[in-house]
Design a protein around this nucleic acid. Structure first.
Length: 573
DNA sequence: GCCGTTTTCGGCCCGACTGTTTTCAGTCG
């Protein structure tokens, strides 16, 4: 690329999408499965990278990522130079676009879609529905009345939203924790745990998984389906049930034999990619791993365990915390005994981003916020009300209130903070002299997210009064995508200017997100985990932020507010 | 197409469920 040439590189999501589409199309053409698997793995990997994989590909460094080789790297370069993978352009012309859509229908996979297309000449969704209605699909071997019926039903329903909305962790986590608590109290229950993506603290989820052992499995399952908030029982057997709650959340309970609890908890915690990689590793040393145990292929002996820890140990790994189980390097690190000791919620000593009624959207007074922070065991709380509500002498009045309260709070300290806006031109909406009088200054983007966001953040960091950047990309999960921030430049500037970055714990922000926070940590940037609370209740949000920090492989040392306020002050220089 | 604590060639996770079948392929997680 020519130096200085402003060329917009494709986002990782776009690269991944092209790789996935290519594999879908090739599969419909009958291509060998393992090439497709390689594309799909590469796509999944690309999605989870913090930096632009396209940039790495241009430098010839994308193939250092496990799962990307010379060929796929070349395809990514094609996306940069020509907008699309050449093979994708070519093969798109060979397979009717609707045939790819066929496979999105539940129960209809690539093999069946291919047969319908090739042998019946059906190429559009409308034709497919008509053929199913006219019972013309059942002439094909392997297709019967049931599938025809299903196709008609699926295609008759109102068009589903193009992308399914996944509920937020902040909604699912308390919900699943409440159900786990209720089930544990049942006399038949022995062990009960959350599982699945929520246990891994992934930012959104599809359903909520619970694993249990019980003296009487049927009794526990039955109790589960009769809890008062259950609106619908979608499936129910002796040891497995699925229910939908009155707020639309899907809960899955599996009651498993005690002797297999470790194997099954591991299996149902996932992620899928982690489990696949773990099983591949095991195959190489002669073990076959499944939810039913670890089988020694040669002797036929099966290792079953009630403990997840024992399972990882048996396979030759350190115990891998659920938050790390994404096949992003944790297996290798665990094999070598190099996993980091992850930060925990109880490590937090204070909160550096919170609002009070001085911000018009705040629900509680400073006094109430302080009492709640104190009761959480914190030794400090930064009140960072929005700058625009603190004009015309209100800032001074607020400061006096904080000072007066500090007289009454013993060793607990309220910090005079402020959250300033980074304007569209990169300047701050509060003058330097005012900022210099505050203990703690957070600067955030709140508007014009597509207007030079990187430059604006950098110019804010270069102001010596700014201590921390709030919610860096300003995304709102399911509502607004992230601003296009050049992370490596931001990290570089953060280190040079001694500015911290935040993991904002608001359920719909979680910003920095996991991959970004991991990259920040690797770059040596310290991160604060803060609530951005606008009410006393929201001071509990850092549980979610700590989840993201753990997914980002962060240790206690890499998190700023595991320190006391005097220690932080020293770092501010 | 990718990759190596046997390997640069010859493998590539595992099982449950479903609908279609008389023994299994395809789909799903």
């Amino acid at each position: 690329m020519i130096a200085g040439m402003a060329k917009t590189l494709p986002r990782n999501a776009d690269v991944a999408e092209q790789l996935e589409l290519l594999s879908d199309i090739l599969e419909l053409e009958g291509e060998a499965a393992y090439r497709l698997l390689a594309y799909r793995r590469a796509a999944a990997l690309v999605r989870e990278q913090p930096g632009l994989v396209a940039e790495l590909a241009l430098e010839g460094k994308a193939k250092e990522l496990p799962g990307i080789g010379k060929t796929i790297e070349g395809k990514i370069v094609e996306i940069v130079n020509e907008g699309e993978i050449r093979a994708l352009t070519k093969h798109k012309a060979l397979v009717p676009p609707d045939v790819v859509e066929f496979t999105r229908l539940p129960g209809l996979g690539p093999k069946t879609a291919r047969k319908i297309w090739q042998e019946l000449g059906v190429t559009t969704l409308a034709d497919l529905k008509a053929a199913a209605k006219a019972e013309r699909l059942r002439v094909l071997p392997g297709i019967g009345a049931k599938l025809e019926e299903r196709i008609v039903k699926e295609l008759s329903g109102k068009r589903k939203a193009p992308e399914e909305v996944r509920p937020l962790l902040g909604v699912g986590l308390p919900a699943v924790q409440a159900v786990v608590t209720v089930l544990r109290a049942h006399p038949a229950a022995l062990e009960v745990s959350d599982a699945g993506s929520v246990r891994r603290r992934k930012e959104t989820f599809r359903d909520l998984d619970i694993i249990a052992t019980a003296s009487e499995p049927a009794a526990l399952t039955d109790y589960f389906t009769k809890l008062r908030w259950v609106e619908k029982v979608a499936a129910k057997g002796e040891s497995k049930a699925t229910v939908v709650s009155n707020d639309g959340l899907r809960f899955d309970l599996r009651v498993v034999p005690a002797g297999l609890y470790g194997n099954l908890l591991q299996h149902f915690t996932g992620s899928k990619h982690h489990n696949v990689a773990l099983r591949e590793d095991a195959v190489r040393v002669g073990f076959s791993v499944s939810e039913n145990g670890v089988k020694d292929v040669e002797s036929g002996e099966v290792f079953k365990t009630g403990s997840e820890e024992a399972l990882y140990e048996f396979l030759g790994y350190q115990y891998i915390p659920p938050e790390l189980r994404e096949n992003l390097g944790e297996l290798e690190a665990a094999r070598n005994g190099e996993l980091p000791e992850l930060v925990e919620l109880s490590d937090l000593r204070g909160d550096l981003h919170a609002h009070s009624t001085w911000s018009s959207d705040g629900k509680n007074s400073i006094e109430e916020m302080a009492a709640e922070a104190k009761s959480r065991g914190y030794s400090y709380l930064a009140i960072t009300d929005h700058s625009h509500y603190l004009r015309d002498g209100r800032l001074e009045a607020q400061a006096r209130e904080i000072e007066a309260l500090n007289e009454t709070l013993g060793r607990f300290k309220l910090l005079k903070g402020i959250e300033v806006n980074i304007r569209a031109d990169g300047s701050l909406d509060v003058d330097d002299e005012t900022l210099a009088g505050r203990d703690w200054v957070v600067a955030s983007l709140h508007t014009a997210f597509d207007k030079n966001p990187t430059e604006r953040v950098i110019s804010a960091m270069e102001n010596p009064n700014v201590d921390c950047i709030g919610h860096l990309t300003a995304r709102k999960i399911n509502r607004r995508g992230p601003a296009d921030i050049d992370l490596s430049r931001v990290f570089e500037t953060a280190l040079a200017t001694k500015t911290f970055l935040e993991i904002n714990s608001q359920p719909d922000r979680l910003d920095l997100r996991d991959a970004h926070a991991r990259a920040a940590g690797e770059a040596g940037v310290l991160l604060s985990i803060s609530s951005d609370a606008h009410s006393t209740r929201a001071l509990a949000y850092p549980e979610l932020g700590v989840g993201q920090a753990r997914r980002a492989w962060l240790t206690k040392e890499q998190v700023l507010n595991t320190r006391t306020w005097p220690q932080i002050k020293k770092l501010l220089g």
